[in-house]
Design a protein around this nucleic acid. Sequence first.
DNA 1: CTGAAAGCGCTTACAG
DNA 2: CTGAAAGCGCTTACAG
Lengths: 337, 337
Amino acid sequence: MKRAKVTSGDVARLADVSQSAVSRSFSEDASVSAVTRAKVLKAARKLGYRPNVIARAMISGRSRLIAVLVAYLDNQFYPIVIEQLSRALQERGFHVLLFITDTGNQDVVVQQMMGYQVEGIVMASASLSSTLARECAQTGIPVVLFNRYAPSSPASSVTSDNIEGGRLVARYLVDGGHKRIAYIAGSEDSSTNRDREAGFYRGLAESSQIVWARAVGNYSFEGAADATRQLCSSKIKPDAIFVANDHMAFSVMDVLRIEMKLHIPNDISIIGYDDVPEADWGGYKLTTVRQPSEAMIDATISILMEQIQQETVSRRAAILPAELIVRQSARLPKNKS
Amino acid sequence: MKRAKVTSGDVARLADVSQSAVSRSFSEDASVSAVTRAKVLKAARKLGYRPNVIARAMISGRSRLIAVLVAYLDNQFYPIVIEQLSRALQERGFHVLLFITDTGNQDVVVQQMMGYQVEGIVMASASLSSTLARECAQTGIPVVLFNRYAPSSPASSVTSDNIEGGRLVARYLVDGGHKRIAYIAGSEDSSTNRDREAGFYRGLAESSQIVWARAVGNYSFEGAADATRQLCSSKIKPDAIFVANDHMAFSVMDVLRIEMKLHIPNDISIIGYDDVPEADWGGYKLTTVRQPSEAMIDATISILMEQIQQETVSRRAAILPAELIVRQSARLPKNKS
DNA sequence: CTGAAAGCGCTTACAG
DNA sequence: CTGAAAGCGCTTACAG
């Protein structure tokens, strides 16, 4: 079948009113009489008319589009964020324009976003280059870096308290009597990794311990497996590993249990970060630090909405409290046993 | 900072050419001299100009937007589909407008999509009402139902061969010597469930067996747990369960192992459907039927692209082959042991 | 190759 | 409350 668009002009003709009247009838707070509106709505229904949002966007300069950029969705944390974010945005009359991209060509992607006249940008992966961030700011488009930040950038950010989260883990592990505590890092250039690691080391230092070993998993499943093999290659192995996120922690647990025939937590304790749904699954029961995704979404929405309304952009940084969720992958603190 | 839009007029002034020339310089196959284009591009860069896609969409009638609708993202199958679909679409110059909605208000959502002048719709959840599907067809917007279908609808569909998949499972379980084979259904009104179940029963019948017990999990984690408890409430339990998707199968395995202290696959075999990444995780090693997500995406893209290009919509139904992936949650067929 | 002009489908002052 | 008209930022015949 061929395309057959019906416009406000068609409706106006059928309802015998002006095109302006049709437009007004579809706007909440426009001055139209009930009679006119009824006539218009009836005609519109008959013709299957629906205002063209694209045209509205052009004239009003409000696309009601929010761009969301993610690098990959295999870490369940992100799908959940996208779902919650979309719902929240939809409730407010906005819609999500989704971009998937590995770090690298994000400059191109941000250009595309701006081409679509998006009213806001959420970067849930890969920090924005500062040049780009500045350009967005100049154009008046609020940008929020989700689960990451860049101090020198004009972009806002929303994170959990990764430093405190890392510290919590260190204390819990020390309290559990662990002596050879290792760390498996995520991507070393990510702010989440930097902060979790820094907080972790600080927590260890507070009990006069230092990290016993360290390997890099780059936030990938395979990277984490390799890191685990590396940490456990010699006779004497760590008795606890803090893994920079849950996604890697599952891989670590698999290698430990299947390849090394180790028992968790008796032989070795594992703690992750994020608290994705799988962390609560029976196959893992992972002790982890919960990122308050709902609070993070709320903060994101409020930064976006505020700056869109005010038509000004400024840098804001929201840091939400993280919480240790105790399950069964790490030995309990001594005083509890 | 305040918004400061730069338009093709601004660029034209700086480059000392007409506004048309600017427009042409940004179009692949327009007739502009190299000199003019160079002047324009230089001026554009200087001003930070980027063509307004919204305006282009309006004039050309091509928004380059594809709406994707999903109900929820907790079943990993969907995030992966969204990721692959987005990448494929981006490569072709299209972008994804994401809608999350539970069944119910999808009519409103589809209206919104059409308001955005999307060029195609992918429904990866909840079948479209036939009224709505017809309306889309009339407007010339191709709709593809992803991982579901509706025979009476003008919408296209892309699925795996769920009937054959179900049959495969039945044969494997029968060959494994199971005698009390149960089924945990997904949503009973979904085409995937209907087909998997029908194929499963057919497969059993081919070996003169019938399903020993059946419960409904509604494709949810909790629903599956309840269904499992129900199936295993009496002394004599099933010796195999085919679970309508992986997401539920993980929950089933958890209940079986933790609550019932059963050993998988020695005491009971479990087979799922989808082959999401978690199925290969050490904590589950789930034997399952793989849905060929890439082939399904390819089919979706080609249906969409073809119909967008031809500006006609017709109903197409792609059914891709499913494959049994043998891991460790089900006893191997007898002849192998 | 180039520019002037029409027009995509709306919203929104501006008069009445 | 209502209609005529301007204009959002582009693309695209139409002449030259």
